[in-house]
């Protein structure tokens, strides 16, 4: 009983299952999580079957990296100098986008609190299919200086597939640029298929995520 109360404390009352009486006395059952959101699972999208076309598209994807403007930890302070005159990442086709629907690269910039992880998963799942994760700083590799913190995760690749790690605490913008160049090489070699990996191992990732996020009040996959 007490456990149930604990869970309910976190739940958004708007998302609760309830009965609604219509104007002509008809009674509906409304379950917003089911009604408002799709409960489909992510799909695996195969690359183009013609190798030359896929190579060309991969080149375009590599040269046009749109980064989601979502700073998770202290590393997000490295992004402004990256885009401004000193380092000017626009030269390499790196541009920032404010919405997950239009972005391809997610920079996890430093430590990830459990509360942030939930938002990160939502945003990551909303990004369209060829999507890449660039993990910044040692906090994403083994927890770094927050390895024994009660509220941060230690290994990012337990929760979402990571393409490139940039080690350091904090890595400077040069290191981040090197990480972008490494990511470009991977995409051009056709190895940027981590989004499909996420779809294939969806149950494993979801189980890991639910193990650590206690107040899970969103659909399993955020379309």
């Amino acid at each position: 009983m007490s456990e149930e109360k604990n869970i309910n404390k976190f739940e958004n009352p708007d998302y609760a299952k309830r009965e609604v009486t219509g104007p002509d006395g008809e009674v509906f059952i409304v379950d917003p999580i089911k009604d408002y959101f799709s409960d489909e699972r992510p799909q695996v999208y195969l690359p183009n079957s013609i190798p030359v076309v896929e190579k060309f598209l991969n080149w375009a994807r590599a040269e046009s990296l749109w980064v989601l403007g979502f700073g998770t930890g202290c590393g997000s302070i490295e992004i402004p100098p990256l885009m401004t005159p000193r380092f000017d990442a626009f030269r390499f086709g790196v541009q920032s986008r404010p919405t997950p629907r239009q972005s391809n690269v997610f920079i996890i910039s430093g430590y990830l609190a459990v509360k942030t992880l939930k938002r990160v998963i939502r945003s990551y799942e909303q990004m369209p299919n060829p999507k890449y994760v660039l993990a910044l700083g040692s906090c994403t590799i083994n927890g770094g200086m927050y390895f024994d913190s009660y509220n941060t995760i230690n290994r990012l690749d337990q929760y979402m597939p990571v393409d490139v790690y940039v080690a350091g605490c904090m890595p400077r913008p040069e290191a981040l640029l090197a990480g972008f160049n490494k990511l470009k090489e991977l995409i051009k070699d056709g190895k940027g298929e981590k989004a499909n990996e996420y779809a294939e191992n969806f149950d494993w990732y979801k189980a890991n995520q639910k193990k650590i996020i206690k107040d899970w009040n969103m659909p399993d996959y955020n379309w």
Binding site: F56, S64, D88, N104
Partner: peptide, 19 residues
């Protein structure tokens, strides 16, 4: 700034997104 051919690459990339 961006390379002068960046808008074309962006366009190809956008049309080539899978999901």
């Amino acid at each position: 700034g961006i390379p002068w051919y960046q808008p074309w690459i962006d366009l190809v990339k956008n049309y080539a997104l899978r999901s």
